[in-house]
Structures are given as structure tokens and as C-alpha cells.
Design a protein around this nucleic acid. Structure first.
Lengths: 149, 149
DNA sequence: AGAGATTGCTTGTACGTGCAAGCAGAGTGG
DNA sequence: CCACTCTGCTTGCACGTACAAGCAATCTCT
């Protein structure tokens, strides 16, 4: 619950965003905890592996990966470094542009991703279901789920 | 954009959550940047001041504040510490339970909050409007805004 | 062909956060 | 009334991230 007494005078955008924040902090924490405890990887690691796994060529340029996981360049440098020491990915130089670096997923990385995948889906759904009884967040989750693109 | 080629086989919950993640990372970054550059405060500081300002008694227990801003206890200890050195709040012992600590907003804290308030609302709305043309995120923003509680 | 600007990534550094341990005050049962 | 447990907050420590500077490769323009 974010609103207090004293008439906060929020625009509807602020009310909407507060709902997003409440959902986000809870769900992300649940996902991170479950992934770490059941598979030994962090949320960013999981999402990187996901994108790499689904990439046609099993590889992604560092900046592309950064965009996909929503991090900055330097964070991804270190993230892929962690994946590398864990054996889940390695770096490969781009032959046509020697500045460019590809992050490439390994078989071990795929295996770990596939092992974690069910956990992610399951924890996500159950975390979202947590709010179904909430008068404010329940309808929000419902609305998010209903969107078809 | 989170989906790649290769048929990721996502549940609708995952698709919904990916939309939330995209929105969240962009909007929060915009808010944090604007608040820091135009008012010299971080997002957590702003939200703390918001809750303290709207509290009837101008004060909040540490744990209550933690719940409201979505942080852990220790983070709030340090957050209020920062507010204290900035002159925006101070700590006060609870007379009835000497373990308890209140964070109390100062006049200077109120002023800074009120100065930042317009920025927050404005940047939030414009950040959300950024997505109106997006085929996936546009409808999501619309849905979030439409919820009435 | 060469100077200057630009791109793609990495490194130095600082900061905010979480977890777990620590600690004082408050509550509880014999 | 004294141990025991519990509660509320703080401290020690480690980690992930961001920003800015650095650096090498590429591109551009004359």
C-alpha cells in the first residue's frame, strides 16, 4: 500500500505507476530468490541466457544483450564475465569488426537455462496470483494479463 | 523488445511481465535521472520524502517506511541516514518503546519534496507517453491508466 | 593517405541494496 | 524476578549496477 492519509493529490499516472512499483518489487524479489536458491543463478544471468538461447546464432553482440536485458554496457561486460567464469557463455570477437564482441552461449549454459525455465514460469505465475485478492493490485494483474498484441 | 526469433514459448504471464519490465526499466531510469539532475535527490529519497510528507504526524517508523518504499530494513537505515545528513529528516526515538525509531521530515525536506513533485509527475507522464506509439507497450500503458480502484 | 570524429567495449570508481550477524529493549513463563 | 525469546533497528560485508574515462578499431572527409 502506497497511499497514505492526507490526500496525496496524485495524478492517475502516479496511481498507475505506484501499482506497477508494488508488483515489480515483489515479483522480482520472488523470482530472484527462487532462481538463486534453486539454480544458483541471478535474475540478470537467467535473462541473458534466455536471450542467448533463443538467438538463432546462439550469440548476441554485447550492446544488443544490454538492450534486451535493460542494463548498461559496463554492467553487461561484467555480467558476461560472470557467465564466462560459470561456463555458461564465452566471448568471441567479431571477425568483420574487430571492436565488436559476441557473447556466445555454451551447452552448459543452455542446460542451466532449461533447468531454470520451469522455475521462472512457475514462480512468476504464483507471484502474480498472490495479488488476485488485492482490491488494487488484483485488477492490475488482470489487466496486464488481458493484453493481446 | 524482449522476444526474439526461435519461438520462445512464453506463457501469457511471461509476456505480460516482459512488458512490465520494459516499462519499468525505462521509466524508473528517466525519473531517477531527472530527480538527480534537477533536484539533487535520488528516487528512494524522493519516495521517502513523499511518504513522510503525507504522513499525518510527519513521521514514520523505520519499518513502515521500508514497506512503503519497498526496501529492506538496512537499506532504510542508510536511506534515512542520507536524508539526515542532507537536512531533510532526522531520527527520533519512540518514547513508549525505546527500540523503535521514527524518521521525521523537516521543513527543508518538505520544501525539497514539493519542489521535486512537479518534476516527478511531469517526467512520469512523458515517459509513459513515450510508449503510446509502441504496438506492444502502448496498449499496456493504456490498460494501466484505465484501472479504477 | 592521413587527421579527426565515431563506435564498441572495458576499466576505475562510487554508490545503493540485501543478507546475516549483532545488540539493546520489550515481552513471557516458571 | 530471572532466564528465554522476540522485536526493531544497525553494522559488516559482498555484490550488481551506473557513470565517466580510456582505448582500440572503424569511418569520413578532403
Amino acid at each position: 500500500m502506497a497511499t497514505s492519509s492526507h490526500a496525496p493529490l496524485r495524478t492517475s499516472d502516479q496511481a498507475a505507476w505506484n501499482r506497477v512499483l508494488s508488483l515489480h518489487s515483489y515479483v522480482e524479489r520472488e523470482l530472484a530468490l527462487a532462481l538463486q536458491r534453486r539454480h544458483g543463478i541471478g535474475l540478470s544471468e537467467y535473462r541473458s541466457l534466455e536471450h542467448l538461447h533463443h538467438s538463432k546464432t546462439s550469440e548476441l553482440r554485447m550492446q544488443d544483450l544490454a538492450d534486451k536485458v535493460g542494463l548498461g554496457q559496463s554492467s553487461v561486460t561484467r555480467l558476461v564475465g560472470r557467465l564466462e567464469t560459470a561456463g555458461f557463455a564465452f566471448k568471441d570477437l567479431c571477425p568483420s569488426d574487430k571492436r565488436g564482441v559476441y557473447a556466445v552461449i555454451t551447452d552448459e549454459g543452455r542446460q542451466r537455462y532449461q533447468a531454470a525455465r520451469a522455475t521462472y514460469a512457475e514462480v512468476l505465475s504464483s507471484a502474480l496470483n498472490t495479488f488476485t485478492a488485492d482490491p488494487e493490485l488484483g485488477p492490475t494483474v488482470q489487466a496486464l494479463r488481458a493484453i493481446q498484441v
